Simulated scan of single mutants.
Amino acid sequence: MEDLRQVLENVGKSEIEHGRNAERLELSVPAEVTTSRGNVISAMTREISRFGIGLLHRGPIMPSEVTVRMASETREFEYRVAVEWCQPCSNGMFMSGGRFLTQASKS
């Protein structure tokens, strides 16, 4: 997790206007991504909006449906996400982004 945090701190902000429909908020919390094959990948969130989420993680995630789990001090959140892109960044890390399909559960 510390490696993920360090890379996240060093990832520069894009100067490009992406024409997004929803405001993105920076959010840096630990997350867990479970692929359709059942692989579990540790991740850090980068940003979140009403429609989607950006992640930072080791190794690529192929565009597909995944489950993303995040926890606060009092609750756990689980979302179904359609990962739409994934690209390498530094130190063997990857950035990905996807749109929310449904909120699977809150604990």
Rank of each mutant, 00 (worst) to 15 (best):
S49W: 07
R69W: 05
V83R: 04
M62I: 13
E17Y: 07
F51R: 14
C89M: 06
L56W: 00
E76F: 01
E17R: 10
T102M: 12
F94R: 04
T35Q: 05
A82K: 15
M1L: 11
L55E: 00
E65Q: 12
G12W: 00
L55H: 01
G12C: 03
V66L: 03
T45G: 06
I53P: 01
R80W: 08
A43M: 07
W85Q: 09
I16K: 15
P88A: 09
H18W: 09
R20D: 04
G38V: 03
P30V: 02
Y79E: 02
V33C: 08
P60K: 13
M70R: 01
C86A: 09
M93W: 00
E2N: 11
S72K: 01
S105L: 12
M95E: 07
Q87V: 14
G52P: 06
A71E: 11
M95Q: 04
A82F: 12
A82E: 15
E78L: 12
P60V: 07
E17A: 13
A43Y: 06
P88D: 03
A71L: 04
A71M: 11
R50I: 11
L27C: 10
G38Y: 06
T35M: 01
T74Y: 09
G52Q: 05
V68Y: 03
I53F: 00
Y79D: 03
E73Y: 11
L25C: 10
V11D: 02
E47T: 03
A71I: 02
R50C: 09
E15P: 00
Q6R: 12
F94L: 01
T34A: 04
T45E: 04
D3P: 02
P63A: 09
A22L: 03
L56T: 00
V29Y: 00
F94S: 02
R46V: 13
V29I: 15
T34N: 00
E2T: 10
R24W: 05
G97A: 05
R20C: 10
A82R: 15
E17S: 13
F100H: 08
R37Q: 14
Q6H: 06
R5M: 12
G38W: 01
G98T: 08
G19Q: 08
A43S: 12
G52A: 09
G38Q: 07
V81A: 09
T102S: 13
M93A: 08
E73N: 13
S49A: 08
E2K: 13
L101N: 08
P63V: 07
S90N: 10
S64N: 13
M62R: 14
